[in-house]
Design a protein around this nucleic acid. Structure first.
Lengths: 194, 194
DNA sequence: GTGTCGACTCTAGCAGTGCTAGAAATTCAA
DNA sequence: TTGAATTTCTAGCACTGCTAGAGTCGACAC
């Protein structure tokens, strides 16, 4: 146990607290309310300390929130699909339900993941949680008997993403969620359909 | 022809030039580059003049760009569907192609329409172009033999919106556009499918 | 042509924002 | 304890959206 160890531990702790503060503040009051000064106040340091942890500035903090969101989403999706009943349709239904629930329960995090953070995608430097999340989508959505699994996963993802974002913006009729989800699952599992 | 007439004409002209300047600047350099000072420079007035036209400030300017975008989208979609071959599938294919083309050709306008502007939706004060656009979606996407047309339109819309936004963010594989679109149309027209 | 008044535009300034430089404070090892 | 290294802070910059009130302009009456 050296002084250096403690310092690194404290530094990592503070790093995590910045990300957590950003995420909480965004979920509570929206991303417009997340300013470097408010974050600094929340962790009880002065504002320039943030840049020691995130040299990219505020954008880097938002990206960290997004990566954290992707990690949680991947874990949650994997658990849901694993716990679904046998066969493809229950897995797709569980995936869709869980995805939309995640977006609805964490609107600001979802916004960071898809609208605010400039994260590399499908590249060598793509963060692991993004790869993991897409892998769950591909494994679950791709039919075993037809075409390109990646393409199928992309289309399924687009459908879920579209549903999540339009619902968040209040642009879908609110009383129809269950039936619309059922219809979506029907369309995404045509060989198992009604 | 009175002095008042000319003034109203000039005022309307300036109103339109503000919206056009915002839209051009956003498409050229992104919405972060659209500031009230830059807009004012572009129309050759001082900055507070903007507030005489748009008392809501910058947000109201963005909303005006969005409403303009919805009007164009509705017109373009209606023309595409009207010009499609007979039957549902060609109409859905034309709709999908046109929708995604619009989003790809006008990324900043599309962002204003769906991410930035707080426009009322499905309410008495919903601007006409939004209603018109959704009507084209519903008329085209709703099958004539099954369930709730509104629900079907919403799901189709979500699919297209998801494809548009994920493509814009570079999150779909770029070489697969045509085949992914074909797959999307297949899924949205199951009774006409391949 | 001159003067007045109302409408319109402008300058100036405010609070707030992200970020940086260098001073000040703290920590740590000898 | 001292001095050096590290860390945190204060102060300030350019920029942003917005507002108040001064300044300018145009229209109209005389």
């Amino acid at each position: 146990m050296t002084t250096q160890d403690r310092k690194e531990r404290e530094r990592a702790d503070r790093h995590g607290r910045i990300v957590a503060a950003a995420r909480e503040l965004a979920e509570d009051q929206g991303w417009d309310a997340v300013t470097t000064r408010r974050l600094a106040d929340r962790i009880e340091y002065s504002q320039p300390v943030l840049y020691g942890h995130f040299p990219g500035g505020k954008d880097a903090i938002v990206a960290a929130v997004a990566v954290e969101g992707f990690a949680e989403l991947a874990t949650t999706l994997r658990a849901a699909v694993t716990g679904a009943g046998p066969g493809r349709r229950p897995a797709v239904a569980a995936l869709a339900t869980t995805y939309l629930d995640f977006a609805a329960q964490h609107p600001a995090t979802y916004t960071a993941m898809f609208d605010l953070a400039a994260l590399p995608f499908a590249r060598d430097d793509t963060p692991g949680p993004l790869l993991e999340g897409f892998a769950v989508l591909r494994d679950t959505l791709a039919p075993t008997t037809t075409g390109d699994p990646g393409r199928y996963a992309e289309l399924g993802w687009a459908t879920l993403h579209g549903l999540a974002t339009l619902a968040r913006a209040g642009r879908l009729s609110p009383d129809d969620d269950g039936e619309r989800l059922t219809l979506a699952v029907d369309l995404l599992t045509p060989s198992d359909g009604p």
